[in-house]
Simulated scan of single mutants.
Amino acid sequence: MRVLQLIDSLETGGAERVAVNLANALSHEIEKSFLCTTRKEGLLKESLLNEVGYLFLNKQKTIDYKAISALNAYVKANNINIIHAHSSSFFVATLIKFLNKNVNIVWHDHYGNSEFLENRKYGVLKFFAKYFSHIFSVNKALETWARENLKAKKVTYLPNFATIDRQSGITNLSGVSGKRIICLANLRPQKDQMTLLDAFKIVVEHYPDWTLHLVGKDFQDAYSEDVKHKIDELDLKESVYLLGSKPDVFHILEQCDIGVLSSKSEGLPIALLEYGLANLTVIATRVGECESVIKHDKNGMVVNALDTNALAHAIMFYIKNEENRKKHAKKYNKHIQENFSEKFQLKTMIEIYNQII
Rank of each mutant, 00 (worst) to 15 (best):
L4C: 12
Q5Y: 07
Q5G: 05
S9V: 01
R17Y: 13
R17L: 13
R17D: 01
R17W: 08
R17A: 11
A19M: 03
A19C: 07
N24W: 08
N24L: 03
A25P: 07
A25H: 01
H28C: 10
E31L: 00
F34N: 03
T37H: 15
R39G: 08
K45A: 07
E46I: 15
L48P: 06
L49N: 09
N50C: 13
N50W: 09
Y54R: 14
L57G: 12
K59T: 01
Q60K: 14
K61S: 12
D64S: 13
A70S: 15
N72P: 08
A77L: 08
I80V: 10
H84L: 14
H84R: 10
T94W: 04
I105T: 02
H110F: 02
S114E: 00
R120Y: 09
R120A: 06
Y122D: 06
G123P: 07
F127P: 13
H134V: 00
H134Y: 05
F136H: 01
F136C: 06
K140I: 09
L142F: 03
E148A: 14
N149V: 01
N149L: 04
K151Q: 11
K154W: 13
L158P: 05
R166K: 15
Q167Y: 14
Q167T: 11
S168F: 14
I170V: 13
T171A: 05
G178M: 03
G178Q: 03
R180E: 11
C183T: 09
L187D: 01
L187G: 01
D192V: 14
Q193G: 05
M194N: 14
F200G: 02
F200Q: 03
V204C: 14
Y207N: 06
D209W: 06
W210Q: 06
T211Y: 02
T211V: 03
L214V: 12
K217D: 01
D218V: 08
F219D: 10
Q220A: 12
Q220H: 13
I231C: 07
D232E: 14
K237G: 05
K237C: 04
Y241K: 07
L242M: 13
K246L: 08
H251L: 15
E254K: 00
Q255S: 07
Q255H: 00
L261Q: 00
S263A: 05
K264Y: 06
G267E: 04
L273Q: 02
E274Y: 08
L277Q: 05
N279W: 08
L280Q: 04
L280W: 01
V282C: 01
R286E: 14
K298C: 13
G300N: 02
G300P: 07
D307Q: 04
D307H: 02
T308G: 01
T308S: 04
N309L: 13
A310H: 07
I315K: 04
M316V: 02
M316Q: 05
M316K: 09
E323L: 15
R325K: 09
H328Y: 04
A329E: 03
K330D: 10
K334I: 15
Q337P: 11
Q337F: 13
Q337M: 10
Q337Y: 11
S341I: 09
E342T: 03
E342R: 02
M349Q: 11
E351M: 07
E351D: 12
N354L: 15
I356T: 04
